[in-house]
Computed example of a mutant assay.
Amino acid sequence: MSPVPIRNPLTIKCPKTGCKSKVIRAQAATLVQRKPRTELPAIGAAEPLPSELPDEIAALLPANTSSADGGWFWMLNDMMEFENIGFSHLVDGQKYLSCADCDLAPLGYHDTTVAGAQDKEYLIAIDRVAYLK
Rank of each mutant, 00 (worst) to 15 (best):
residue 103 D to W: 08
residue 126 I to D: 02
residue 20 K to S: 12
residue 95 K to C: 06
residue 47 E to N: 11
residue 118 Q to W: 10
residue 40 L to K: 10
residue 111 D to G: 12
residue 114 V to Y: 12
residue 71 G to R: 07
residue 106 P to N: 05
residue 56 E to Y: 01
residue 60 L to K: 00
residue 110 H to M: 12
residue 65 T to F: 14
residue 124 I to V: 14
residue 103 D to R: 10
residue 38 T to D: 01
residue 89 H to Y: 11
residue 64 N to V: 04
residue 116 G to K: 00
residue 99 C to H: 03
residue 81 E to Y: 10
residue 107 L to N: 03
residue 59 A to T: 05
residue 24 I to Q: 02
residue 127 D to K: 14
residue 74 W to A: 10
residue 68 A to W: 05
residue 104 L to C: 08
residue 103 D to L: 06
residue 41 P to K: 04
residue 36 P to R: 12
residue 98 S to T: 05
residue 37 R to V: 06
residue 56 E to R: 13
residue 36 P to K: 07
residue 21 S to G: 15
residue 69 D to M: 14
residue 63 A to Y: 03
residue 68 A to R: 10
residue 74 W to Q: 00
residue 92 D to S: 13
residue 126 I to C: 08
residue 129 V to S: 03
residue 13 K to D: 01
residue 61 L to F: 15
residue 67 S to D: 11
residue 8 N to Q: 09
residue 116 G to H: 01
residue 72 W to Y: 09
residue 39 E to K: 09
residue 28 A to Y: 13
residue 41 P to C: 08
residue 125 A to T: 09
residue 125 A to I: 06
residue 10 L to D: 01
residue 83 E to N: 15
residue 11 T to C: 07
residue 14 C to V: 14
residue 61 L to A: 11
residue 17 T to Y: 08
residue 8 N to H: 10
residue 28 A to V: 13
residue 4 V to P: 04
residue 126 I to E: 01
residue 57 I to A: 11
residue 106 P to E: 00
residue 125 A to E: 06
residue 8 N to T: 12
residue 17 T to Q: 11
